[in-house]
Design a protein around this nucleic acid. Sequence first.
DNA 1: TCAATATATGAATAACTGTTCATATATTAC
DNA 2: GTAATATATGAACAGTTATTCATATATTGA
Lengths: 115, 115
Amino acid sequence: MQCDHESEHASAAKRAAENMPSEEEVEKVAASFKAISEPSRLKILFALRHGEMCVYHIVAAVGSTQSAVSHQLRILRAGGIVKTRREGQNILYSLADEHVVAVLELACTHLKCKL
Amino acid sequence: MQCDHESEHASAAKRAAENMPSEEEVEKVAASFKAISEPSRLKILFALRHGEMCVYHIVAAVGSTQSAVSHQLRILRAGGIVKTRREGQNILYSLADEHVVAVLELACTHLKCKL
DNA sequence: TCAATATATGAATAACTGTTCATATATTAC
DNA sequence: GTAATATATGAACAGTTATTCATATATTGA
Protein backbone atom coordinates (compact mmCIF):
# COMPACT_ATOMS: atom_id res chain seq x y z
CA MET A 1 0.00 0.00 0.00
CA GLN A 2 1.30 3.40 -0.89
CA CYS A 3 -0.37 6.59 -1.88
CA ASP A 4 1.12 8.84 -4.52
CA HIS A 5 -0.94 12.01 -4.35
CA GLU A 6 1.67 13.27 -1.98
CA SER A 7 1.13 16.87 -2.94
CA GLU A 8 -2.48 16.91 -1.84
CA HIS A 9 -2.78 14.74 1.25
CA ALA A 10 0.66 14.07 2.58
CA SER A 11 0.76 17.41 4.33
CA ALA A 12 -2.57 16.80 6.06
CA ALA A 13 -1.45 13.34 7.09
CA LYS A 14 1.82 14.70 8.41
CA ARG A 15 0.10 17.40 10.40
CA ALA A 16 -2.40 14.83 11.68
CA ALA A 17 0.33 12.51 12.89
CA GLU A 18 2.24 15.34 14.53
CA ASN A 19 -0.81 16.73 16.29
CA MET A 20 -2.34 13.41 17.32
CA PRO A 21 -3.22 13.65 21.02
CA SER A 22 -1.44 11.24 23.33
CA GLU A 23 -2.84 7.80 23.94
CA GLU A 24 -3.95 8.91 27.40
CA GLU A 25 -5.84 11.90 26.08
CA VAL A 26 -7.51 9.90 23.35
CA GLU A 27 -8.60 7.34 25.89
CA LYS A 28 -9.96 10.01 28.19
CA VAL A 29 -12.08 11.48 25.41
CA ALA A 30 -13.17 8.01 24.34
CA ALA A 31 -14.19 7.16 27.89
CA SER A 32 -16.33 10.28 28.10
CA PHE A 33 -18.15 9.46 24.89
CA LYS A 34 -18.47 5.84 25.90
CA ALA A 35 -20.18 6.94 29.08
CA ILE A 36 -22.92 8.61 27.06
CA SER A 37 -23.14 6.01 24.31
CA GLU A 38 -25.40 3.48 25.96
CA PRO A 39 -29.19 3.81 25.64
CA SER A 40 -29.69 3.09 29.32
CA ARG A 41 -27.27 5.86 30.31
CA LEU A 42 -28.55 8.31 27.72
CA LYS A 43 -32.04 7.93 29.13
CA ILE A 44 -30.70 8.90 32.53
CA LEU A 45 -29.12 12.01 31.03
CA PHE A 46 -32.29 12.93 29.16
CA ALA A 47 -34.13 12.58 32.45
CA LEU A 48 -31.66 14.74 34.33
CA ARG A 49 -32.12 17.55 31.82
CA HIS A 50 -35.37 18.18 33.68
CA GLY A 51 -33.58 18.76 36.94
CA GLU A 52 -31.78 17.21 39.85
CA MET A 53 -33.21 13.84 40.86
CA CYS A 54 -32.74 11.06 43.40
CA VAL A 55 -32.16 7.49 42.26
CA TYR A 56 -35.72 6.47 42.94
CA HIS A 57 -37.05 9.08 40.53
CA ILE A 58 -34.42 8.30 37.92
CA VAL A 59 -35.51 4.68 38.04
CA ALA A 60 -39.10 5.79 37.58
CA ALA A 61 -38.24 8.15 34.75
CA VAL A 62 -36.22 5.68 32.70
CA GLY A 63 -38.15 2.53 33.53
CA SER A 64 -35.40 0.25 34.74
CA THR A 65 -34.30 -1.40 37.98
CA GLN A 66 -32.59 0.19 40.95
CA SER A 67 -29.51 -1.97 40.56
CA ALA A 68 -29.07 -1.37 36.86
CA VAL A 69 -29.52 2.38 37.28
CA SER A 70 -27.09 2.48 40.18
CA HIS A 71 -24.44 0.68 38.15
CA GLN A 72 -24.94 3.09 35.26
CA LEU A 73 -24.83 6.10 37.56
CA ARG A 74 -21.46 4.98 38.80
CA ILE A 75 -20.12 4.98 35.26
CA LEU A 76 -21.59 8.39 34.53
CA ARG A 77 -20.16 9.76 37.74
CA ALA A 78 -16.71 8.27 37.15
CA GLY A 79 -16.75 9.80 33.67
CA GLY A 80 -17.55 13.25 35.03
CA ILE A 81 -20.88 13.36 33.23
CA VAL A 82 -23.05 13.70 36.32
CA LYS A 83 -22.40 15.03 39.79
CA THR A 84 -24.01 14.22 43.12
CA ARG A 85 -24.88 15.70 46.45
CA ARG A 86 -26.41 14.01 49.43
CA GLU A 87 -29.63 15.20 50.99
CA GLY A 88 -30.50 13.05 53.97
CA GLN A 89 -31.08 9.51 52.82
CA ASN A 90 -31.07 10.47 49.19
CA ILE A 91 -28.29 11.08 46.72
CA LEU A 92 -29.31 13.72 44.24
CA TYR A 93 -27.88 13.44 40.75
CA SER A 94 -27.54 16.21 38.19
CA LEU A 95 -25.71 16.86 34.92
CA ALA A 96 -22.10 17.80 35.61
CA ASP A 97 -21.94 21.00 33.57
CA GLU A 98 -23.15 22.90 30.54
CA HIS A 99 -20.89 20.94 28.19
CA VAL A 100 -22.94 17.84 28.80
CA VAL A 101 -26.15 19.65 27.96
CA ALA A 102 -24.51 21.16 24.88
CA VAL A 103 -23.27 17.82 23.59
CA LEU A 104 -26.67 16.22 24.01
CA GLU A 105 -28.29 19.06 22.13
CA LEU A 106 -25.69 18.95 19.36
CA ALA A 107 -26.31 15.25 18.87
CA CYS A 108 -30.04 15.80 18.63
CA THR A 109 -29.57 18.63 16.18
CA HIS A 110 -27.24 16.45 14.13
CA LEU A 111 -29.81 13.67 14.05
CA LYS A 112 -32.71 16.04 13.54
CA CYS A 113 -34.55 14.62 16.51
CA LYS A 114 -36.54 16.69 18.97
CA LEU A 115 -35.48 16.86 22.59
CA MET B 1 -38.00 1.82 47.48
CA GLN B 2 -40.00 4.97 47.58
CA CYS B 3 -39.11 8.60 47.72
CA ASP B 4 -41.07 11.06 49.78
CA HIS B 5 -39.74 14.46 48.83
CA GLU B 6 -42.52 14.52 46.30
CA SER B 7 -42.82 18.24 46.38
CA GLU B 8 -39.30 18.79 45.16
CA HIS B 9 -38.47 16.07 42.65
CA ALA B 10 -41.65 14.40 41.63
CA SER B 11 -42.45 17.12 39.13
CA ALA B 12 -39.04 16.84 37.47
CA ALA B 13 -39.38 13.07 37.35
CA LYS B 14 -42.85 13.34 35.87
CA ARG B 15 -41.71 15.79 33.20
CA ALA B 16 -38.70 13.57 32.48
CA ALA B 17 -40.86 10.49 31.96
CA GLU B 18 -43.29 12.37 29.76
CA ASN B 19 -40.59 13.91 27.60
CA MET B 20 -38.37 10.84 27.34
CA PRO B 21 -37.51 10.37 23.66
CA SER B 22 -38.69 7.14 22.04
CA GLU B 23 -36.58 4.02 22.25
CA GLU B 24 -35.67 4.45 18.58
CA GLU B 25 -34.46 7.99 19.07
CA VAL B 26 -32.46 7.12 22.15
CA GLU B 27 -30.82 4.28 20.27
CA LYS B 28 -29.99 6.52 17.33
CA VAL B 29 -28.28 9.03 19.59
CA ALA B 30 -26.49 6.24 21.46
CA ALA B 31 -25.26 4.74 18.19
CA SER B 32 -23.80 8.07 17.15
CA PHE B 33 -21.91 8.47 20.39
CA LYS B 34 -20.82 4.85 20.30
CA ALA B 35 -19.30 5.47 16.90
CA ILE B 36 -17.01 8.11 18.36
CA SER B 37 -16.34 6.39 21.68
CA GLU B 38 -13.56 4.03 20.69
CA PRO B 39 -9.94 5.23 20.85
CA SER B 40 -9.15 3.74 17.45
CA ARG B 41 -12.05 5.61 15.85
CA LEU B 42 -11.41 8.83 17.74
CA LYS B 43 -7.86 8.88 16.42
CA ILE B 44 -9.24 8.68 12.91
CA LEU B 45 -11.48 11.65 13.61
CA PHE B 46 -8.66 13.65 15.16
CA ALA B 47 -6.65 12.92 12.02
CA LEU B 48 -9.45 13.99 9.71
CA ARG B 49 -9.70 17.35 11.44
CA HIS B 50 -6.58 18.21 9.45
CA GLY B 51 -8.31 17.57 6.16
CA GLU B 52 -9.64 15.01 3.74
CA MET B 53 -7.50 11.88 3.58
CA CYS B 54 -7.24 8.54 1.81
CA VAL B 55 -7.11 5.31 3.80
CA TYR B 56 -3.38 4.96 3.36
CA HIS B 57 -2.74 8.29 5.02
CA ILE B 58 -5.25 7.63 7.78
CA VAL B 59 -3.41 4.40 8.54
CA ALA B 60 -0.16 6.33 8.66
CA ALA B 61 -1.61 9.06 10.85
CA VAL B 62 -3.17 6.78 13.44
CA GLY B 63 -0.58 4.02 13.37
CA SER B 64 -2.74 0.97 12.82
CA THR B 65 -3.33 -1.61 10.10
CA GLN B 66 -5.22 -1.19 6.84
CA SER B 67 -7.78 -3.80 7.77
CA ALA B 68 -8.51 -2.45 11.23
CA VAL B 69 -8.84 1.10 9.91
CA SER B 70 -11.11 -0.02 7.11
CA HIS B 71 -13.42 -1.80 9.55
CA GLN B 72 -13.55 1.28 11.76
CA LEU B 73 -14.19 3.57 8.80
CA ARG B 74 -17.20 1.49 7.89
CA ILE B 75 -18.65 2.06 11.34
CA LEU B 76 -17.96 5.79 11.21
CA ARG B 77 -19.51 6.00 7.77
CA ALA B 78 -22.60 4.01 8.75
CA GLY B 79 -23.02 6.31 11.73
CA GLY B 80 -22.91 9.41 9.58
CA ILE B 81 -19.74 10.65 11.25
CA VAL B 82 -17.57 10.68 8.14
CA LYS B 83 -18.34 10.97 4.46
CA THR B 84 -16.46 9.74 1.40
CA ARG B 85 -15.79 10.51 -2.21
CA ARG B 86 -13.82 8.53 -4.69
CA GLU B 87 -10.86 9.98 -6.55
CA GLY B 88 -9.43 7.41 -8.91
CA GLN B 89 -8.15 4.47 -6.93
CA ASN B 90 -8.53 6.28 -3.65
CA ILE B 91 -11.47 6.81 -1.37
CA LEU B 92 -11.14 10.14 0.39
CA TYR B 93 -12.61 10.41 3.86
CA SER B 94 -13.64 13.56 5.67
CA LEU B 95 -15.69 14.57 8.70
CA ALA B 96 -19.39 14.53 7.86
CA ASP B 97 -20.31 18.02 9.04
CA GLU B 98 -19.64 20.81 11.49
CA HIS B 99 -21.54 19.07 14.28
CA VAL B 100 -18.85 16.42 14.43
CA VAL B 101 -16.12 19.02 14.72
CA ALA B 102 -18.11 20.86 17.37
CA VAL B 103 -18.69 17.77 19.49
CA LEU B 104 -15.01 16.86 19.39
CA GLU B 105 -14.07 20.36 20.46
CA LEU B 106 -16.66 20.39 23.23
CA ALA B 107 -15.31 17.14 24.61
CA CYS B 108 -11.78 18.50 24.63
CA THR B 109 -12.91 21.69 26.30
CA HIS B 110 -14.80 19.65 28.86
CA LEU B 111 -11.70 17.57 29.58
CA LYS B 112 -9.38 20.55 29.43
CA CYS B 113 -7.18 18.85 26.86
CA LYS B 114 -5.59 20.64 23.94
CA LEU B 115 -6.60 19.66 20.41
C1' DT C 1 -6.89 -8.68 -20.63
C1' DC C 2 -3.38 -8.63 -17.00
C1' DA C 3 -0.77 -6.92 -13.20
C1' DA C 4 -0.60 -3.67 -9.57
C1' DT C 5 -2.61 -0.82 -6.17
C1' DA C 6 -6.38 0.69 -2.95
C1' DT C 7 -9.99 -0.50 -0.21
C1' DA C 8 -13.48 -3.62 1.77
C1' DT C 9 -15.16 -7.66 4.15
C1' DG C 10 -16.20 -12.44 6.31
C1' DA C 11 -14.92 -15.52 9.96
C1' DA C 12 -12.79 -16.40 14.28
C1' DT C 13 -11.08 -15.20 18.56
C1' DA C 14 -10.36 -12.44 22.66
C1' DA C 15 -11.72 -8.74 25.42
C1' DC C 16 -15.25 -5.86 27.12
C1' DT C 17 -19.74 -4.52 29.02
C1' DG C 18 -24.76 -4.41 30.71
C1' DT C 19 -28.01 -6.72 33.46
C1' DT C 20 -29.52 -9.61 37.15
C1' DC C 21 -29.37 -11.43 41.73
C1' DA C 22 -27.90 -11.27 46.18
C1' DT C 23 -26.00 -8.60 49.52
C1' DA C 24 -23.60 -4.65 51.66
C1' DT C 25 -23.33 0.15 53.33
C1' DA C 26 -25.28 4.42 54.96
C1' DT C 27 -28.78 7.44 56.84
C1' DT C 28 -32.90 8.37 59.53
C1' DA C 29 -36.63 7.58 62.88
C1' DC C 30 -37.94 5.20 66.79
C1' DG D 1 -29.22 0.07 69.25
C1' DT D 2 -32.70 -1.54 65.86
C1' DA D 3 -35.69 -1.35 61.95
C1' DA D 4 -36.64 0.78 57.67
C1' DT D 5 -35.30 3.09 53.62
C1' DA D 6 -31.96 4.59 49.93
C1' DT D 7 -28.16 3.55 47.41
C1' DA D 8 -24.03 0.88 46.09
C1' DT D 9 -21.51 -3.18 44.72
C1' DG D 10 -19.48 -8.03 43.69
C1' DA D 11 -20.05 -12.12 40.93
C1' DA D 12 -21.81 -14.45 37.03
C1' DC D 13 -23.77 -14.76 32.62
C1' DA D 14 -25.01 -13.18 28.03
C1' DG D 15 -24.42 -10.24 24.40
C1' DT D 16 -21.42 -7.09 21.95
C1' DT D 17 -17.28 -5.59 19.66
C1' DA D 18 -12.30 -4.72 18.04
C1' DT D 19 -8.62 -6.93 15.92
C1' DT D 20 -6.31 -10.26 12.97
C1' DC D 21 -5.88 -13.08 8.96
C1' DA D 22 -7.14 -14.30 4.62
C1' DT D 23 -9.40 -13.00 0.71
C1' DA D 24 -12.46 -10.29 -2.30
C1' DT D 25 -13.66 -6.22 -5.06
C1' DA D 26 -12.58 -2.12 -7.66
C1' DT D 27 -9.74 1.04 -10.28
C1' DT D 28 -5.80 2.18 -13.18
C1' DG D 29 -2.14 1.67 -16.55
C1' DA D 30 0.15 -1.27 -19.73
